[in-house]
Design a protein around this nucleic acid. Structure first.
Lengths: 340, 340
DNA sequence: GTGAAAGCGCTAACAG
DNA sequence: CTGTTAGCGCTTTCAC
């Protein structure tokens, strides 16, 4: 491995001079700089980040902890985050928790031992607060993305779940729907709570009753296991006048599993039932926009999250906490229809 | 920052003993071990990877260089890769080249300075060979994923583009299609070359003529810019008897832009024209399987790629190169139809 | 079983 | 403008 000592020897200078050339620090005579740069090129020298980290106490590496990068919503966040990070000369370590708090703990350990300069995280639940505390005990700034958790004090970047939910339900009501079911994510995640709040308040504002049976929760793993079907079945087995005419799926994955279940039950969308959801259903939307959705600016969320994080890392704007809540775009498409 | 010295002091042992406890190396008396472990817990000590790397000369970090993690095909690869990496106690640094060789060079620099233990890469073009050489000059093993490049000697994990292409075209011919257009990716990527080879050979085997006008190439950026439309228009402006009755889109993104273009031209799939493509169009396929595709086992590719890479890093099985070519699954669905 | 010394590659602090 | 010294946190080597 080539080190600054090799360069120093070759260029007939001290290692310190080499270091200065590399970091553009201090004043260096042009001739010296050129000698050193020549040697660097010839030997193909690349600075050793580990050694640098040891003295500088920073790694120029950020941790990105998401639910599942193969979910289009999160992969867009990841892309926006990564782009913003390289832009600022940081690297990104990625991870997937699958909403599993044990996995999350392991990744926090990983980030800790990697000595990342900061962490951008979509927390699995309110319990994540302990893990955030752990990071902060080690002086690692944390920014939340997509969700907040109870008791968290700090920066976060979210989509506006409440507002999106309000608009989606308002749209359904405007289309004549009175019986609207909500299939929500787990209520230990803030987005689920906010979406439910939006749902309930919109019903109230429109003097519509709330039926307990219309509200259900399903977590990530259950969706993957296909358990949405039994929920949908139960809804469809309600007596005709109570049967929902619309389903509000709290995210794209739930929406897809709802569609699948409805299809298996021989129900057609939107003829037999309308469906709305949060998050765009990519990439099919580009040629066949089907779902009526509240589309969140995922890449933008990732980008802003990383920017906030880097500012914290570099100690800028440390005075106040910043809470960014980006409104989703509502797209009315083919999965909803007017009823009498 | 807590170091082994703090632990040593607290536990009344030498730093070396602490190191041994942490690494489970050498023999340690039970009582000593417990004292040390207690101190570690109490102080919340986490080993500093940078310092470790400096002596051990390994970072337990792998570089993953892909085209675009927000493309479902690559996000599945990334997911499979990351899962396999944590499993083996490695971290993953992610990056997106957008098929741009300049970006790629920057990421190689990043991987070099990060001193990653190995790199799994989907090369942007044959020119990537120089970059791979650079990595290898620094003793960093490289495994290729999704594509090979000319002159590369080493491990790779690919989908079988040739075979998938053969089957897709065979299917179209079986459905009565004679005029089949190929909208390919750029021919400096091996998958594009292989898909074209499969296309040409299948035509030949079926005594079908090859029309130059049926074959076109479009790169990643042009697809994103929406330039597929002019290609599709040109195809559709051919005299009736020459006009293609089917389009073979070389990947999912091209397929989507083809669909969009056809729609804008008022053409219906599969009534007016059939479309097939490589790669699954996720996640809509789960409830509305539309495209006839050659689906590649993306997560599996990522997983095997990382396994091969780690074996190289850890010097196992170094004897021979391993070339894994996984066959795609052909799914005949609604985007193709029989014609007379 | 445990410890002391030296060094991994780099940079901050000081000297000249 | 350039060089010397020391030390970041850990592990390898050799002693005891």
């Amino acid at each position: 491995m080539v080190t600054i000592y090799d360069i120093a020897k070759k260029a007939n200078v001290s290692p310190m001079t080499v270091s200065r050339v590399i970091n553009n620090s201090g004043n260096i005579r042009m001739a010296t700089r050129e000698k050193v740069e020549k040697a660097i090129k010839e030997l193909g020298y690349v600075p050793n980040s580990a050694a640098r980290s040891l003295t500088s106490n920073q790694t120029k590496t950020l941790g990105l902890i998401l639910t599942d990068i193969s979910n289009p919503f999160f992969s867009k966040i990841a892309r926006g985050a990564e782009d913003a990070a390289v832009e600022m000369d940081y690297r990104v370590l990625m991870s997937n928790t699958d909403e599993d708090s044990d996995k999350e703990i392991n990744y926090i350990d990983m980030m800790l031992s990697a000595r990342v300069d900061g962490v951008l995280i979509a927390p699995t639940s309110d319990k994540t607060l302990d893990q955030i505390k752990r990071l902060r005990d080690h002086n690692i700034p944390v920014v939340l993305i997509d969700r907040t958790i109870e008791g968290f004090v700090g920066d976060y970047v979210l989509g506006d779940s409440y507002e999106g939910s309000r608009k989606l339900v308002e749209h359904l009501i405007g289309y004549g729907h009175r019986n609207i079911a909500l299939i929500n994510g787990p209520s230990n995640v803030s987005t689920a709570r906010e979406r439910q709040r939006g749902y309930l308040e919109t019903l109230k504002l429109n003097d519509l009753p709330v039926h307990e049976k219309y509200i259900s929760e399903i977590d990530f793993k259950s969706v993957q296991a296909g358990n949405t079907k039994s929920i949908v079945e139960q809804l469809m087995q309600l007596p005709e006048e109570k049967r929902p005419t619309a389903i509000f799926a709290a995210n794209n994955f739930i929406a897809i599993s709802v569609m699948k279940a409805l299809k298996e039950l021989g129900l057609h969308v939107p003829k037999d039932i309308s469906v709305v959801c949060f998050d765009e259903v990519e990439p099919v939307v580009y040629f066949d926009p089907f779902f009526t959705v509240a589309a969140q600016p995922a890449a933008e969320l990732g980008k802003i999250g990383i920017q906030f994080l880097i500012e914290r890392v570099e100690q800028k704007n440390v005075e106040q906490e910043r809470k960014i809540i980006l409104p989703p775009d509502i797209h009315i498409r083919k999965s909803t229809r007017r009823i009498k």
